[in-house]
Design a protein around this nucleic acid. Structure first.
Lengths: 251, 251
DNA sequence: CAGTGGTCTAGACCACTGG
DNA sequence: CAGTGGTCTAGACCACTGC
């Protein structure tokens, strides 16, 4: 029963069974066989489908759950993870108020400053694995807490997957931007990496954040990926850190 | 066989067997029954000792490995994790050169600027769970790469566990500071959390980092814990981010 | 109640390490 | 070769959810 299930594909031929199962489930997720928020088949069903024991499916799903691609709920089932209906509003945003009291602060007030189509610069093209000159969407927005502008974000999206995205639709959408990307464009952000620096704002940035040009700000450059490590969004945030800080856990 | 093993302790009485096993192993780690770098007993041995199946021990160790408390090596055994002999030199340091080429950069040149005993300020006492006025050690050092001072660190340690630590011993030790804490003081740092801000240096800090007072720097305030979430070190780093950046992965 | 994920077991075999 | 962790199975039972 240990003959590779994927012998006919380009898979490196020999890996544990549960890894192969994991890959198969991942392909179904990626292909949209089950939509975000929906349940995937039960462990027994999957075991039957792949002709392996429940324990093997279990280990595959364990890893997917550890990578936040899937959420287990005892007694109910296993569900495709989603950026919506997730108790943590912004899963990738690590900026928290100094008080630590993220509850009383309330949701961020969002303002779309700009949204335009343009051709990718060399930098943006490289980050998003496009060719220089390909169409990209550029968005600039401000997030404010209790009326205080705190975050200025510039973000770049590849033009093709996000065809039809406009400032109107951004303004119209409720909830996290990544949730809208899922429902409207079928793009699910799965993983991201950030490069953080301390910088000074230019005059326009300073004005949008209501600080003077000598105020040091956190520059957070994020590259977000969808399945298969495909880069899908480049985002550069400027964070005010006089009332908030970037919180990180080291294991 | 599902009667709680820890019925006579203050444990909340009902948790899965493997959680109880995990707790027991953790207690042995904490008590120093096996030292950092040494192997713990084999899964079979532990299964026999605790009168459970190998699979149950396995799940317990899996979690300890996921928390980096222990390292599995196939064919050899399971070893107590250590900050020394770990291919990653500084496990908690997330600052990397912009080139990404951490290899060619070489090890940091370390300079102990200051090391003194004093009484804990209110802030330090709160962070380290001491009483205000208790003895603490304060250390200031600079890390340079290729001769360029890049990191200025102030750190505070509780006086009792680190009795006998002096500038001499700091200067004499090779390798990561956390490795020396293990071998010399039996204190193993297990977990940490960081609060990151953008700040401007005061004149002394600017001088030590060879930058002018208008250069924005990354302020990284780290609280490091040993077993049982006991805070053991407060560290405040000032990072130059003109040639390096703080790198973070978001899952 | 049936169906789900969660725990536990016992035993078989594989893959890797070192003497 | 014996000993270690790693995989896989089959089956039992538990804990939680919802009808």
């Amino acid at each position: 029963m240990n003959t590779p299930l994927l012998a006919d594909t380009a898979t490196p031929s020999f890996s544990p069974l549960y890894q192969q199962i994991k890959t198969l489930i991942l392909q179904s997720l990626q292909a949209g066989e089950w939509k975000p928020g929906e349940p995937i088949p039960s462990e027994m069903d999957l075991a039957a489908r792949f002709r392996v024991s429940q324990g093997t499916v279990r280990k595959a799903i364990d890893e997917l759950a550890a990578e936040n691609l899937v959420v287990r709920r005892q007694g109910k089932g296993t569900f495709v993870a989603t950026h919506a209906e997730q108790h943590v509003q912004y899963r990738f945003l690590k900026l928290v108020p100094d008080s630590g009291d993220t509850a009383t602060e309330g949701p961020a007030e969002r303002t779309i400053v700009d949204c335009r189509r343009l051709r990718a610069s060399a930098d943006v093209a490289r980050a998003l694995a496009l060719r220089s000159g390909d169409a990209v969407l550029q968005v600039r927005r401000v997030l404010a807490y209790r009326g205080v502008p705190t975050i200025l974000e510039d973000l770049w999206l590849p033009g093709l997957p996000f065809k039809g995205l406009t400032a109107e639709r951004l303004r119209a959408s409720r909830g996290p931007m990544y949730a809208m990307f899922e429902t409207e464009f079928g793009v699910r952000m799965v993983r991201a990496e950030e490069k953080i620096r301390a910088v000074l704002p230019d005059t326009e940035q300073a004005a949008l954040l209501a600080v003077d040009a000598a105020t040091p700000l956190l520059s957070v450059e994020r590259l977000a990926h969808t399945y298969h490590d495909t880069p899908m969004e480049l985002r550069r945030g400027l964070y005010r850190t006089d009332t908030h800080h970037y919180r990180n856990e080291l294991g």
